[in-house]
Design a protein around this nucleic acid. Structure first.
Lengths: 241, 241
DNA sequence: GTTGACTCTCACGTAACGTCATACTTTATA
DNA sequence: TATAAAGTATGACGTTACGTGAGAGTCAAC
C-alpha cells in the first residue's frame, strides 16, 4: 500500500506518515526504486498500535521506546490498551456528570463548589505511563504483582448522572422528544440494576448449551464459548448468593 | 484566587494560565498592585468552558472566537458540550470494540479486514466545529434546524463487544477472577436488554408519586422531578406498545 | 505524449505550551 | 524583625507534532 491508501484507510495525513518515517517510528518495509513508500500489513498493525497509544496521550518518543523494547509484546499491549481505554471512558463519564450538574447550576437549581466544577479534568501525569513503564521498562519486569480486578461497574455515578440529566428537562413536556430520550436512558439503566434474577441468569447459561441455536450463535465468536459461558455463569450465580 | 490555587484546583499549569492571559483568552478580572493575577469565580467558569472545548479538540483560537461571540450563551454551550461528550463516548466504545476484536485476531481466532482494524480512529475534521460555527458563527444563526433525537443506545455493538471480551478469556478457568469479571459484565448487559417489562416500568413511575420515600429521594435533584418522571414514563410506555 | 493524480524531499511555519533565567513579593520561621 | 522559603512576574528560547507550500520526479490513462 502506498501512502495515500494508508492515509485514507486510517485517517492520518500523508505528512504524518512521512513524519513517522523521518523520526524512525514507522519505517515502511519496502520502497520502490523511485523511493515510494510501500506499507505492509505488519506496518499497518504497528500503525494501529501507534494510534492507540497516541490516543491515550503518549508522546511519539515514548511510543517508540515502547515499541522497540525487547520486552514488548503486542498481545499484552492490547490488553493494556483495553484497560486504559475503559479507564478513559470512566473519566469521560465523570466529565459528562460534571456538565449535567453545571447546567443545573447555571439555572440556579444547584449549589456547586469550585472543586466540583472541575471534576474529571485532572488527568494528572498520565497514570498509564507508570503502568507501561513497569511492564516494558528498561529495568526488566516484576511479573508477580497482579492486581485485584474490579467486580462490576460503579453504577452509582451513572444513576446520579441520569437523575441530573432528567432534572435538567423536567420543565419540558413529558412527551417531548428530549424528555423521552432521557427517560429512555432511565429505562435501560433500571434494567441494568437488578431485575434479572440470578436464578434466571443461571438458567440462561444452561440453555446456551442445551439449545443448539444458542450454541451455534455464540460459538461464532470462538469455539467452545457457549460451554465456557455456562460454567462461568454458574460460578457467578453461586458467588452471588 | 492566585495562579497556583487555580492551577491546583483545575489541573492546568501556571504557565498555561500565563499563556491564556498572554493571548487574551482568559484575562483575570483583577490584579494586585504588584502585578499578581487574581482570578474571580467568573474567571473560573470561563476556564471551565475553555477546558471543555479544549478536550473536544478545539484550538485556542477557535475557543476565543466562540467565547467572545455576541451570540454566545453559556447555557447553550453546555448543552452542546454535553452532546459532544456523549458523541465522543460512542467513539471510544467503538475503539474498545476494535481492540477486543484485534486481541482475538492476534490469537488467530478471527479474520479482520484492514478497515476494521482502524474503526473508531477516523475523527474526520471535528464534526463539532461545524455545529458550533452554525450556532455562534459570525453569520448569525439559523435557529430552525432541530434534529431528531436518537431513541435509546445501540445495544448491538455493546453486545458484540462483550461477546468478544468473553471469547478472549474462554480458555481460562471459569471461576477465575478475570472470567468472573467479564461474565459480570454480561449479567448487567442482559439486564439492560429487555427483562424489565414496560408495564413494570410504568408501575414504577406511579410509585414515585405514591410512595413518599421515593418522592423525597428523587425530588432532591429538583422539585417536581418525581411527578415529571411519572408522566414521562407513562408516555414512554405507551409509545413502546 | 501529455495531462492529471500521486509521490518525493527540503524547508520554513505554527500551536500550545515547557523550561530555564532573572528579579520582585509575600509568607513563614527563627 | 531579619531572613529564608515559597510564590509570582516577565522575557526568551526550546520542543512536539505536525501543516503548508515549493520544486521536481513518477505513474497510469487517454
Amino acid at each position: 500500500m502506498k501512502v495515500k491508501e494508508v492515509s485514507q484507510l486510517t485517517g492520518v495525513s500523508v505528512r504524518t506518515l512521512h513524519h513517522y518515517d523521518d523520526i524512525g517510528l514507522l519505517t515502511p518495509d519496502r520502497t520502490t526504486q523511485a523511493g515510494y513508500r510501500l506499507y505492509s500489513d505488519d506496518n499497518l498493525a504497528t500503525l494501529q498500535q501507534i494510534l492507540f497509544f497516541r490516543e491515550l496521550g503518549f508522546s511519539l518518543k515514548k511510543i517508540k521506546e515502547l515499541l522497540t523494547s525487547p520486552a514488548f509484546s503486542r498481545q499484552e499491549a492490547f490488553e493494556m490498551q483495553r484497560k486504559m481505554l475503559l479507564e478513559k471512558r470512566k473519566q469521560l463519564d465523570s466529565m459528562i456528570n460534571t456538565i449535567e450538574k453545571t447546567i443545573q447550576h447555571g439555572r440556579g437549581e444547584l449549589v456547586m463548589t469550585n472543586e466540583e466544577k472541575f471534576k474529571g479534568f485532572d488527568f494528572g501525569e498520565n497514570p498509564y505511563e507508570q503502568e507501561a513503564r513497569e511492564r516494558w521498562g528498561d529495568n526488566a519486569v516484576d511479573e508477580s504483582n497482579k492486581k485485584a480486578i474490579q467486580f462490576g461497574p460503579e453504577l452509582g455515578e451513572e444513576m446520579n448522572r441520569i437523575y441530573f440529566s432528567l432534572a435538567g428537562v423536567r420543565h419540558m413536556e413529558p412527551s417531548s422528544d428530549e424528555a423521552q430520550a432521557r427517560i429512555g436512558e432511565w429505562f435501560t439503566f433500571l434494567n441494568k440494576m437488578g431485575s434479572y434474577s440470578l436464578e434466571a441468569f443461571a438458567g440462561l447459561g444452561e440453555m446456551y448449551v442445551a439449545d443448539e441455536r444458542f450454541t451455534k450463535n455464540i460459538d461464532q465468536f470462538g469455539e467452545g464459548l457457549a460451554l465456557f459461558m455456562r460454567d462461568a455463569m454458574a460460578v457467578y450465580v453461586k458467588k452471588g448468593k
